[in-house]
Simulated scan of single mutants.
Amino acid sequence: MAGEKRAPRLHVDGAILGYKRGLRNQHNSVSLIKIKGCDSKEDVDFYLGKKVAFITKAADGAFRVNWGKVCRHHGGNGVVRCRFRRDLPPQSIGGRVRVMLYPSRV
């Protein structure tokens, strides 16, 4: 307890805002994510290409993960567009995701 070291956290929390939208359509394949601590277009540059995990719990108690990737910014206030392997369900809007700090481009 006192002498144990905890592994470093390799993710940043994010919130699902919804889908990319137009005037008369929405693009279910592109989700909008607000990353905690990312408040400008310049901050988004660090997160481009990073992996995003949407984690759910199945009926049998197992955890399921839908992986995605940050593909570009959306506006100027730190919201990003992400593409997931399987489109996020509508129930996920308002839910949480983990934005992984890898792969690194440094």
Rank of each mutant, 00 (worst) to 15 (best):
N25T: 13
V70L: 02
D13E: 13
L101W: 01
D60T: 06
G94K: 04
A62P: 01
V97W: 00
G94C: 01
V52F: 02
F54D: 01
V70T: 03
W67Q: 11
M100Q: 08
W67F: 13
C82T: 02
M100E: 07
V30S: 01
V106T: 13
I35D: 04
D39R: 10
G18R: 05
G18Y: 07
K57I: 13
K20C: 02
K50Y: 11
D39W: 10
E4F: 12
N28P: 10
V99R: 04
I35N: 06
I35W: 01
H27G: 00
P103N: 03
G22R: 10
G37W: 11
G94H: 05
V79G: 00
H27R: 09
V106W: 15
D13W: 11
I16Y: 06
R72D: 13
F63I: 05
C82R: 00
A58Q: 15
R105P: 07
L17S: 03
F46A: 12
K36F: 09
Y102P: 00
K57G: 05
R86G: 02
S31Q: 06
K5N: 12
G94S: 02
N28G: 03
C71W: 12
L101N: 11
A2E: 14
A53K: 14
S104D: 14
K57R: 15
V44C: 10
R81T: 07
V12E: 12
K51W: 13
P90E: 07
G3M: 13
S40R: 10
L48F: 08
D60I: 03
K57S: 11
I16M: 03
A62D: 14
R86F: 09
W67V: 04
D43R: 05
V79D: 10
K69V: 10
A2R: 12
L32V: 06
V52T: 06
R72V: 00
E4H: 11
